[in-house]
Structure formats: C-alpha cells, structure tokens
Simulated scan of single mutants.
Amino acid sequence: MKLLLVAFTISVLISSLLILISTLFSKKTVLDREKVSPFECGFDPKNTSRIPFSIRFFLIAIVFLIFDIEISILLPLGLISNTIPPILWMSAGGLFLLLVTFGLFYEWKEKTLDWIS
C-alpha cells in the first residue's frame, strides 16, 4: 500500500511539473502575432479571417459522429458470437440499428440533413 502511495505521489509530481514547464514555454508573445494572422499572397486580407461557424455543418458532423460510434459499438458483436446464442446478439444488434435508423429518419424529417435551406 505504501509503495502504491509513493508511486501515485511521484506520478502526480511529474505530471504537475510537466504541465508547469509546458505552460511556461508555450506563452504567446507579441512576436507571435504575425504567425497567427492570415496570409494572402503577402497582402493584408480583405475580409476577416474569423467567419461565423455554420451550425448546419456542426449538426452534420454530429450525425457522422453518431454513426461512427455506432460502428465501434457493433464491431464487438462478431467477437461475442461464439459465447452468446446468435438470436440474442442478433436481436440486440438489430434493436440498436433500428434505434439509430429511427434517429436518422427523425433528423431527415426535421430537415437537419438538408445543407441548403
């Protein structure tokens, strides 16, 4: 128990030291202002470089993320197919796919997937 406490204390100290060092060395200075400014062929930009973020693009990205996570949830079903009866894991996977499909149809019905509106 004592060894675990010592190891935990050492790891917290090392982590805190690394965070402190990275914070000290990563401070932005006035000289870095030119690095973060947009560059258009050597001229000053005509428009602002910070345009508002499209909420439609964000919603499409969230839907893509949901389907990406869906694949990572369904992949282990092939690994457990030898230990669980097939009807059980097939019905669980089918129910999950059905719920995600209903979610997709709901997004479609609410016109969230329409890029131009």
Results as ranks from 00 to 15, higher is better:
residue 13 L to K: 08
residue 15 S to T: 11
residue 15 S to G: 08
residue 16 S to H: 10
residue 16 S to N: 06
residue 16 S to L: 15
residue 17 L to F: 15
residue 17 L to M: 15
residue 17 L to N: 13
residue 17 L to R: 15
residue 17 L to H: 15
residue 19 I to P: 09
residue 20 L to H: 11
residue 20 L to N: 12
residue 21 I to H: 10
residue 22 S to K: 05
residue 23 T to W: 09
residue 23 T to E: 07
residue 23 T to Y: 12
residue 25 F to M: 12
residue 25 F to D: 10
residue 26 S to N: 04
residue 28 K to S: 12
residue 28 K to V: 11
residue 28 K to D: 05
residue 28 K to M: 05
residue 30 V to G: 01
residue 30 V to F: 11
residue 31 L to T: 15
residue 32 D to S: 07
residue 32 D to P: 04
residue 32 D to H: 11
residue 33 R to D: 09
residue 33 R to Q: 13
residue 33 R to F: 15
residue 33 R to A: 14
residue 33 R to T: 15
residue 34 E to P: 00
residue 34 E to M: 11
residue 36 V to N: 14
residue 36 V to Q: 11
residue 36 V to Y: 14
residue 37 S to R: 11
residue 37 S to T: 07
residue 37 S to K: 11
residue 38 P to F: 14
residue 38 P to A: 10
residue 39 F to P: 00
residue 40 E to Q: 07
residue 40 E to F: 14
residue 40 E to M: 08
residue 41 C to N: 13
residue 42 G to R: 02
residue 43 F to K: 13
residue 43 F to A: 08
residue 43 F to H: 13
residue 44 D to M: 07
residue 44 D to N: 11
residue 44 D to R: 01
residue 45 P to Y: 00
residue 46 K to D: 02
residue 47 N to Y: 12
residue 48 T to K: 01
residue 49 S to K: 12
residue 49 S to A: 03
residue 52 P to S: 01
residue 53 F to A: 11
residue 53 F to N: 08
residue 54 S to M: 04
residue 57 F to P: 01
residue 57 F to S: 08
residue 57 F to W: 05
residue 59 L to D: 02
residue 59 L to I: 00
residue 60 I to K: 03
residue 61 A to V: 05
residue 61 A to Y: 03
residue 62 I to D: 08
residue 62 I to F: 13
residue 63 V to W: 09
residue 63 V to H: 12
residue 63 V to N: 10
